[in-house]
């Protein structure tokens, strides 16, 4: 299994791919849930939009102004969220986000953590 956080300061090819072409960028017209978050240290700002059909996520999109790691983390998160129930979303960890990206540099752990916080903020918003 790939480790979630690695001792490196360079991004993997997978992460670079997400930064070059982040998935699911933009807003959702009528979202069921909106989560927001910032990283005070580096100034990252994110918004996550979720639209549910029944119990499951039908669409997840995001807007991002931040470093490479938070961009890739949000891109990964919107991929991972598709088809999941709220309960399943609550179970997503920063480690899983990093693993989805094939590993993130250890000093960027806080970016995967921000992605998780924003997700939980959105779920609170829906509740």
């Amino acid at each position: 299994m790939t480790p979630a956080f690695v001792d490196a300061h360079h991004y993997s090819e997978t992460v670079l791919g997400h930064i070059a072409e982040p998935h699911n960028v933009g807003a959702i017209e009528r979202p069921d849930a909106v989560g927001r978050g910032t990283n005070p240290s580096c100034g990252d700002e994110v918004t996550l939009y979720l639209r549910f059909e029944g119990e499951r996520v039908a669409e997840a999109k995001m807007e991002i102004l931040g470093c490479g790691a938070i961009t890739a983390s949000m891109s990964a998160l919107t991929d991972m969220a598709g088809g999941k129930t709220a309960e399943e979303l609550m179970a997503i960890t920063p480690e899983q986000i990093a693993e989805h990206l094939g590993g993130l540099p250890r000093h960027k752990r806080h970016c995967a953590q921000l992605a998780q916080r924003v997700l939980r903020d959105a779920l609170k918003d829906r509740a």
């Binding site: 909106v34 918004t47 807007e63 991002i64 102004l65 961009t71």
Partner: peptide, 10 residues
């Protein structure tokens, strides 16, 4: 263009 818009909250 990817940045959060201020009006994002419903």
């Amino acid at each position: 263009a990817m940045a959060p818009k201020p009006e994002a909250r419903r």
